[in-house]
């Protein structure tokens, strides 16, 4: 009895949580301009979307989002991974201070992060554009990379690096051959986290994109929605993104489960 109740509760909650997603998914297969208006089954929106008929703005927003995410995640990953190693080798008082600063962008609401970096650009008189967005994204992604590399570093044998140096490796070789392989899982998950955070970001981008017409997917959707009504082609895009994430997560978890079984 209890079991049935628990299951009903969980599945009902999931149904409510997924209802909006399902509605968008279902209505991506019809051409009605307004959501909720079923005008017959069609792949029209999908073909419009892939032919780029939804307008050059949407296409460039998608390209910008991907470019910004990859570039800022790459920079954050390099900065953050090296920083983790550096911080690990610092005196504990310095380490505490840096850890505190590191947690600031994580705790800060994105609107504060966005506005404060915007003020920096205003103060220095820097005109805003792609570069300023990337810098801002690096600023809030790097702390997460540090946090995901640090645990791997803690688990690692600290003498390995020293041993490599004693055996005549240069610091660069020791980094590449000893530290990097050990830290790789942390670095990789830091990178993925940075990409996700950057793609998801809205507020920081909004304040730092300037008026030069650079839009990311988030700011495009925002502007679109404020003009009153979602571009219909966003429905197929949304469905594709959702399905991709679903498939990726399933693959990832099946693989994880298999690895756990092996252990």
């Amino acid at each position: 009895m209890k079991k049935i109740f628990a299951n009903i509760y969980l599945w009902a909650l999931l149904l409510i949580l997924y209802a909006p997603v399902l509605i968008i998914f279902v209505f991506s297969f019809t051409e009605g301009k307004v959501l909720g208006n079923w005008t017959g089954f069609s792949f029209g929106l999908y073909s419009n979307f892939f032919k780029g008929e939804a307008g050059p703005l949407l296409t460039s927003a998608i390209v910008n989002t991907v470019v910004i995410a990859l570039v800022s995640a790459a920079i954050s990953t390099v900065l953050g991974s090296l920083a983790a190693i550096g911080i690990y080798n610092m005196r504990s008082s310095t380490r505490r201070a840096i850890n505190f600063v590191n947690s600031v962008p994580i705790i800060n609401p994105d609107i504060i992060t966005g506005i404060s970096i915007f003020l920096l650009y205003v103060f220095c008189g820097i005109s805003r554009g792609m570069g300023t967005i990337i810098c801002a994204h690096v600023a809030f992604c790097t702390p997460y990379v540090v946090l995901s590399v640090m645990p791997r570093l803690m688990k690692m044998n600290p003498n390995l690096y020293e041993a490599a140096i004693d055996l005549g490796a240069t610091p660069f070789v020791a980094l590449r051959k000893v530290l990097f392989p050990e830290l790789k899982p942390g670095i990789l998950s830091g990178f993925i986290l940075a990409v996700t955070l950057s793609i998801d970001d809205f507020a920081v981008t909004l304040f730092n994109k300037g008026s030069g017409g650079i839009e990311t997917l988030s700011t495009f959707i925002y502007a679109d929605a404020r003009r009153g009504g979602l571009t219909p082609e966003l429905r197929p895009l949304f469905s594709i993104i959702f399905l991709t994430i679903l498939v990726l997560l399933v693959i990832f978890n099946v693989r994880n489960a298999k690895q756990n079984d092996k252990k």
Partner: peptide, 19 residues
């Protein structure tokens, strides 16, 4: 290795603390 954190410290100073 401490030095490896310097670029990060600079970035955090400019884009987190100063703002």
């Amino acid at each position: 290795r401490k030095v490896w954190a310097f670029p990060y410290v600079a970035v955090m100073a400019v884009f987190v603390v100063i703002p």
